[in-house]
Design a protein around this nucleic acid. Structure first.
Length: 533
DNA sequence: ATAGGGTTAG
């Protein structure tokens, strides 16, 4: 983008002949240096060419780069590998990075050095949609006889994230071993991260366990990677192992570590863990951190301790978008819709611009409390005042809002007016509302839509079958049920977990393997008896 | 004589 701007700037710059003559003296000094094959670099370079120091001050603002870039190109200093690498680095690390211009710059470097290769590889590996280009640069680099160093691999490995498989990652792992970089902590951590990202948990654990010098980033990578893969209990176990390791080695949990541990604890709803983490944090200097505050708000809210959430929220010095969203969705999840709406008003009054996630929290508060008018109002506000187009989740939430309120007609109308294909969740919400209202005909129609969507319809099938059973239409009930189970479809068994004295126990329906299942059932029976009396 | 792996809300 700014490559184009630069061309026009260059033309206007060079077009003025008086200016050009005045600058000639400076250029000719640089030109003299370009004759010299022994390139100077670093401090001595900047001392000889003070103009180049502007390179250091314009990382995020390409506009400031233009004058010095002109100087660099016209003088020929661009062929100094150090200077070329600096320019390339600026193109790749701008905000946003301009990879097209970086490629143009890279192609102009006659003999790219390892630093230039690493820089362009990093630029593409960190991009969203052009990660594969990083690999083709790696390939070209090897073809030109340049060997990678220990910096190259972490760059390349960050590009091995889903949807790409572990295939290229394993390839790189082999290169690391052969070239002797497999003992480097950074490379090893990047490998662990890559395996976790590609879903190869066992390989990642194996690698991590064999690491000779784990530092805190390695630990944090493992914990956050396990969470991303849905292994929250294992993440907490690793965190405990880290805690016992902290006594013997120099590793010490950082903000990133604590935030990840908190996320696992929040997901599991483990109140004791959350409290323990909070207690730890009070002893460190981390409480002032916004990330930490946000994760505590979320953690306490997920554990049902919304009072603690709002206390943390009030004590926070700097509240950002996420702090407000966390407290709104916390209130929403704990059935406090009025407080959620109040917090939303507070957020707007504080000058924080809500984003789609914030609106989702508001809408879910309305839907849980049956506040139809407020829901519709905010759904419109989001589009009208904030120019945000609702996503599938927002539409799903609105369907849920109407369906829970028993407004089946309105829910149907809303679905047919949707510009997006309704999600399974939206149709499912409508279907359960049909059961609650005993609207069998509508339920059949909705179930038909779900089946024709081609996705797994086991939940819908079970629900419809139950509806037939409600009406004592046993034949149809068993027919639907057979279709669900006979077609290879199986409803995944529901599972839950409970934290008792700091230990998380997971249990499943249909699975007698848990040694505590009997205890759990008898405890539930006791609760049920209490409830009746 | 420039660079590297990790962070929260749905």
């Amino acid at each position: 983008m700014w490559g184009c701007c630069f061309s026009s700037w260059l033309i206007s710059f060079l077009g003025n002949s008086t200016v050009r003559r005045r600058r000639y003296a400076r250029f000719s000094a640089a030109a003299a240096d370009c004759q010299n094959e022994n390139w100077i670099s670093g401090n001595s370079l900047y001392k000889r060419h003070p103009h180049l120091q502007r390179l250091e001050a314009c990382d995020n603002s390409p506009w400031q780069l233009f004058p010095v870039l002109t100087y660099i190109i016209v003088s020929g200093l661009f062929q100094n590998p150090f200077v070329a690498s600096r320019v390339l680095h600026i193109c790749c690390n701008g905000d946003p990075p301009d990879l097209n211009f970086a490629t143009v710059v890279f192609r102009q470097i006659r003999r790219p050095n390892l630093f230039s290769w690493n820089t362009i590889i990093k630029g593409f590996a960190e991009s969203e949609d052009r990660r594969s280009i990083a690999f083709s640069f790696y390939r070209q680099m090897l073809d030109r006889g340049i060997l990678p160093d220990k910096h190259t691999f972490p760059f390349l490995l960050t590009g091995c994230r889903p949807p790409s498989t572990a295939k290229s990652g394993k390839f790189l792992h082999a290169h690391c071993v052969v070239l002797g970089f497999s003992m480097d902590t950074f490379v090893q951590t990047a490998l662990v991260n890559m395996y976790l990202g590609c879903g190869h948990k066992t390989d990642a654990r194996h690698l991590f366990d064999k690491m000779t010098s784990r530092d805190i980033v390695s630990w944090t990578c493992l914990i956050s990677g396990l969470i991303a893969g849905g292994h929250h209990e294992e993440a907490l176990e690793v965190f405990k192992a880290l805690r016992s390791d902290e006594g013997q080695s120099a590793v010490k949990a950082t903000v990133a570590t604590m935030v990840s541990a908190m996320a696992a604890s929040a997901f599991l709803g483990a109140l004791d863990h959350t409290r323990a983490l909070h207690g730890n944090l009070e002893k460190t200097g981390y409480m002032a951190d916004t990330f930490i505050g946000n994760s505590l708000i979320n953690g306490y809210a997920k554990c049902g301790s919304i009072g603690s959430s709002s206390k943390i929220f009030q004590q926070m010095k700097d509240r950002d978008l996420l702090s407000w969203t966390a407290i709104i969705s916390g209130f929403a999840a704990n059935g406090m819709a009025q407080e959620a709406l109040g917090a939303f008003a507070g957020m707007r009054a504080a000058g924080i611009v809500p984003d789609p996630v914030a609106f989702l929290a508001v809408l879910s508060a309305c839907s849980h409390a049956g506040l139809v008018d407020e829901g519709v109002e905010n759904f419109e506000l989001m589009q009208r005042s904030y120019k945000l187009s609702p996503g599938l989740k927002h539409y799903g939430c609105m369907v849920d809002l109407f369906a829970r309120a028993g407004l089946l007609r309105r829910a149907c109308e809303f679905i047919s007016a949707m510009p997006l294909r309704p999600s399974m969740a939206a149709l499912g919400a409508l279907l359960s509302a049909c059961r609650a209202k005993g609207e069998l005909e509508l339920a059949e129609a909705v179930a038909g839509v779900i089946v024709s969507s081609g996705e797994s319809a086991s939940g819908a099938g079970v629900l419809l079958s139950n509806m037939y059973a409600d009406e004592s239409r046993w034949q149809e009930a068993s027919l639907v049920r057979k279709k669900v189970t006979g077609g290879g479809l199986r409803k995944p068994p529901g599972h839950s977990w409970i934290e008792v004295e700091g230990v998380v126990y997971r249990f499943m329906v249909e699975n007698g393997s848990d040694p505590h299942l009997k205890e759990i059932i008898s405890a539930l029976d006791a609760f049920a008896k209490d409830g009746r009396s």
